[in-house]
Amino acid sequence: MELTRRDATAALAAVGATGGIALAARREADGPGAESGEADRDGADPGTEAGGALSDDDTVRAAMIAVATVVYPEEVEGVEGFVDEFLDGRLDGSAHASGVRAAVGELDGAARSWHGAPVAELPESDRDRLLREVGADTADENPDGTLAERVRYYVVNELLLALYASPTGGELVGLENPQGHPGGTESYRRGPR
């Protein structure tokens, strides 16, 4: 099944480009003299928290596409263009984008240490193994958590969210208007095709 430009646009419509969004869980510091709700939604800047440099966008895109070919099902085609276009909307100046860049940077670091090359240059079987070695398969997503939890949040689930909130991703499961996609109010009335 072919992922299209429309799918990438739809995925962004579901989760939004992140730029300028100022959203956060309330902090313990909230209270008299402190305002709630205006820190960035992903908490402390993950780039600085991780203590590493952020990956440049080309590296991030290459790594995300490489991971997508592992976490997306075989029957999906057009992954590179879909991921690239989705990231056009996500890799902005937000803290979320910084989190993606930082998580990819750390994943690439692990790839170099354990497999001798960055994620994008590994064969698919090694990419799959790397993600499992990092622990992203069993981790619960957490933007402020361990490396495994951050890779799960910013890399694996970022990509899965994009796919399965898109019309093509939904259709793979049998649901052409998945949650998060503004697919109108006709499909719920239709019977199976």
Binding site: A14, G16, L23, E28, N142, A165, G180
Partner: peptide
């Protein structure tokens, strides 16, 4: 839309969507 993402993401609990919680 970002709040919608929170509603879908498993790391976010329902009160997180509209910043409910904390000492307030």
């Amino acid at each position: 839309l970002a709040r919608q993402e929170r509603a879908i993401r498993p790391s976010r609990d329902r009160p997180d969507v509209w910043d409910v919680g904390g000492d307030r």
